[in-house]
Write a protein that binds this DNA or RNA. Structure first.
Lengths: 155, 155
DNA sequence: TTGTGTGGTTGCATCATAAAACCGAATGCC
DNA sequence: GGCATTCGGTTTTATGATGCAACCACACAA
């Protein structure tokens, strides 16, 4: 996407997230990583993407602290890519994307899988946004405020 | 990005969402639309993006049923772009992106805003994933299952 | 030593992107 | 009505990210 207008310096947290995750492949790589994939070849086989692009993406994700390279694991002297806590923290994003598709896709019958809780095997609930006191919030009931000052003990 | 490997036919709901939302600008346009922007020029000013790209993105979002064009509203004979229910349904995705940035960004002090509930003015809670019975779920406590058969009244 | 599989990198053609010029229609000003 | 300006895009052009395939380096095996 040409010069890509990096959002890195932007003050909007959404833009900042998109700067790390907002390309066509990164979230899918993370999805597979959450699923347990670790090796270059595994990602390449599963996603069917070009290997050079995969290499670039993996390096970018490592640079962003989303993946880390582990020296090895199964004997073979190659390296693996494992999710960091930051990487695992994208889980709600993936769930939100999944649920949006489930709810609004024009051809929901083409969706092959559902997300269930492992223990009971039943579909998970929709993500919901709640206020600090637990009230359910619609978008209209929210607003953004300037970030409160750095709060240096000033009470 | 050349031929862009459209995910439209993919069975993964995440890929399907990314097909509609997964470029650099669409989610930011939607963010501004949720914020109340409606006019071409408003988007262009606020986002500072190239106008041709904005035009392409707006048309794509309309084609995807995320935005709709309204004939006018404030007298001037121009058109507006308003969110459809499908478009408003992206709200959790944006919240998830925001919260991920808030939690994991390397320079959180550069984030300018917080999302609060309008009534109390207090920051919202983190999105949380719960099982059907209300248990909080971690990623590891979930799994994906093949979609149950179309369920044609078969009990 | 040769062979094979993994894990990438390098070239190259193509196409999406970004920036700016351009353009018609609508609006404002007189 | 005439003229300039703004709005809402489209066109043009340069750039560079993408996808594909070929290539390379290394590990391991025979």
């Amino acid at each position: 996407m040409v010069k890509r207008t990096s959002f890195e310096g932007d003050a909007c947290p959404i833009a900042r997230s998109l700067d790390a995750l907002g390309d066509w492949w990164s979230l899918l790589i993370i999805r597979e990583a959450l699923f347990g994939l670790r090796r270059f070849g595994e990602f390449q086989n599963k996603l069917g993407m070009a290997r050079n692009i995969l290499a670039v993406r993996l390096r970018a994700l490592v640079d962003h602290g989303i993946l880390a390279t582990a020296p090895a694991s199964d004997g073979s002297a190659y390296q693996e890519y494992v999710l960091t806590p930051k990487g695992r923290g994208t889980f709600p994003i993936l769930v939100a994307l999944r649920q949006w598709s489930e709810e609004f896709d024009d051809r929901p019958e083409e969706i092959a899988t559902v997300l269930v809780d492992r223990e009971k095997g039943r579909p998970v609930k929709k993500l919901e946004l709640r206020a600090a006191d637990g009230r359910l919030l619609t978008p209209a009931e929210t607003m953004v405020k300037p970030r409160p000052a750095p709060r240096r003990r000033s009470a």
